[in-house]
Design a protein around this nucleic acid. Structure first.
Lengths: 216, 216
DNA sequence: CACAAATATGACCAATGGTCATTTACTATG
DNA sequence: CATAGTAAATGACCATTGGTCATATTTGTG
């Protein structure tokens, strides 16, 4: 059945084409101005067609993130491999994440805009896209866990909770920090330092909290 | 000119009535389901009328938050007044904030949904609502600054940055944490502890980072 | 009463995410 | 080649949204 096979390939190709077009639209017009219709237009397809390849907008966005997430993971992997004190390593992971987000603005925006509604994670039989995203997320968590474990082993860190829980704490706090800054969710009258500096300092503060305290 | 005066009062009254109605709608139908039209309906007014009292949806939401924010501020003031070590005080402020948000769900939701677009803070001559909100925010920051200052004075904390900057760090991180948790912006496959516990622990971690380290 | 100013109205607009009956392109079979 | 059947694409259509504005109503004043 060479036909079925070819069909599948073509289908996958179309999917990729749509993603490519979507990416271009995002880069050109920003998150706010990117409607499904616009994406369809850019892909030279009808809007309805998009829904043959993606369940809804959210899934399209998620799929769009996939490749970038992969790239990010590789960067973090590099960072983790380096020979450095664990606390520095952790900080570097954070800044790597931020830098990457800066360089890939639409990734950043999507990342901070995606909301995982219960339906998205529970109800459905979990599409490939969602599965992929979750897997990538788990890999990220695993990498961070590794750094923390090293830190504990080398007596740099002393954790009050299981490693996985601490990873979650860090992730939530850092991602939250980014979201708040990026979306101006705090009214700052006075001018503030760059987002990068703030994020760096918040990460430093958190990491300081992980550090082994000298016996008093 | 008793007329002008009365007119103003009536106008203010209408505004309040609208807010009351809006609040009811929010409580009954949740954030997602509360459109301007619905609010208008609840207030027994036409949609257009709302725009005579509020510049746009955002301002209405902000105004809605005002009273609650006031209440929260009083709670935090109480907390700050207590005689306690500064670190505990700070932690209590955080949990107070979270608890309050829980008890006033729509406040919470609005709080975490409001985005301060540049136009909102810069362009306009800053409506009374925005001013109020900013003032309240500054009071909150001032209270936290006070706690930090106490902590520094009593040698509980040792800050690496100016107090105001640290306050911002804490605020951004904690608010971010709440936003991420509330909006499920992190895909958690495994079940996690309650949001309250996570928030408590993140706060603890941050505060630990502020604590004076024993000279090694 | 007549005029003017403040208020209120709701039809209307442009966008948006999403649907679905219909059409089009392609392929296996007689 | 013709025909039936299937997969893919379409775009008109829908409901909903925030927001506008010409028109109508109410109110106060001379």
């Amino acid at each position: 059945m060479g036909v079925r096979e070819r069909r599948e390939k073509e289908r996958e190709q179309r999917r990729q084409d749509i993603l490519t077009s979507a990416r271009a639209v995002f880069l050109k017009h920003g998150f706010e101005q990117t409607s499904m219709d616009r994406i369809a237009q850019a892909a030279e397809l009808a809007k309805g067609t998009l829904y043959l390849y993606f369940k809804n907008r959210e899934e399209l966005l998620m799929a769009l993130i996939g490749d970038d997430f992969e790239e990010l993971l590789e960067m973090i992997e590099q960072t983790v491999k380096r020979k450095e004190p664990s606390d520095k390593k952790l900080l570097h992971c954070t800044t790597a994440f931020y830098r990457f987000s800066q360089d890939n603005q639409f990734f950043y925006q999507l990342m901070t805009q995606l909301h995982f509604k219960p339906e998205c994670l529970m109800n459905q039989p979990s599409t490939a896209t969602i599965t992929q995203f979750q897997e990538q997320n788990e890999r990220l968590m695993a990498l961070l866990s590794q750094v923390l474990q090293e830190g504990v082993d080398t007596k740099v860190f002393q954790l009050d909770h299981p490693i996985h829980y601490v990873v979650m704490q860090l992730t939530v706090a850092m991602k939250g920090t980014m979201v708040v800054l990026k979306n101006n969710m705090i009214p700052v009258t006075l001018k503030r330092p760059s987002d990068e500096k703030i994020i760096h300092d918040v990460a430093t503060l958190l990491i300081k909290g992980l550090r082994r305290q000298q016996a008093q």
